[in-house]
Design a protein around this nucleic acid. Structure first.
Length: 229
DNA sequence: AACCAGGACGTGA
DNA sequence: TCACGTCATGGT
């Protein structure tokens, strides 16, 4: 007789999303696109750096805008640490303009590339990243999870919307409270954390845009049906 | 033509 | 601590 494994809700939601959308293969790189099931990415220091740059550029902006900026940087050979560090400030501003907030983000990229150079092959701590101007909790966790392969769960606006709709969190809960709630109910596993966040984004793009009716979310419908019975 | 997108920071209460 | 204004482009 096989024992039934007790799974947490958090894990069940993950399984549900994975069966709905399949592997997402984040983080996308300009050259390689989505890596799909090759979880050894990123392999080179340059790829790690590109992911970090993307994490800064995508702050409050759609990824399609970020791609334009990344392609501009690639053309200028500035998707490498040294390349970006060498780039003139005005040139950098122009290149990342499509990603919005280009004045702030220019400073943030310059500051970060210096940090990245000094980092060497070391993995930074979360606090270390948070102490850098322009890197908040979500950006830090994105870098840790996708660039440095540390199982640090990312809480973005979509994560909040979905978990709020599923009544697993409250409206007022802080970033860190939501993060630790999820992490205590999900074994630390880089692959799963990576997929989970990507799946949340995929799911949210389909059901949790502000213009949509969030009650159409199939996960929510399942729950509300159970309650009705 | 407003509104929103894979946030973070500075300010004042 | 925390609510609020600010930063800016591109798509719908």
């Amino acid at each position: 007789m096989i024992k039934k494994i007790l799974m947490t809700k958090i894990r069940l939601i993950y399984d549900e999303l994975l069966s709905l959308y399949g592997h997402q293969g984040w983080w996308p790189l300009i050259e390689h696109g989505y890596h799909l099931k090759q979880y050894n990415f990123p392999t080179t220091n340059q790829q790690k750096f590109e992911i970090c740059i993307g994490a800064i550029l995508t702050q409050n902006v759609s990824w399609t805008n970020v791609e334009k900026a990344l392609i501009n940087l690639k053309k200028l050979n500035a998707l490498t640490v040294k390349g970006l560090d060498k780039l003139e400030e005005e040139e950098l501003k122009t290149a990342i303009k499509p990603a919005g907030y280009y004045n702030q983000k220019t400073n943030r990229l310059k500051t970060f590339s210096k940090f990245f150079i000094n980092l060497g092959n070391r993995v930074p701590t979360r606090d270390e990243l948070l102490s850098i101007n322009g890197i908040g909790p979500e950006t830090a966790d994105s870098m840790l999870l996708y660039s440095f392969k540390v199982p640090s769960f990312i809480v973005d606006a979509y994560t909040k919307r979905i978990f709020l709709q599923l009544k697993l969190i409250k409206e007022t809960e802080s970033y860190d409270a939501i993060k630790s709630f999820i992490e205590t109910n999900l074994n630390p596993d880089v692959k799963i954390y990576q997929e989970y966040h990507a799946l949340i984004v995929a799911h949210a793009k389909k059901y949790y845009q502000k213009k949509y009716d969030q009650t159409l979310c199939p996960l929510y419908q399942k729950i509300s049906q159970k309650i009705a019975k």
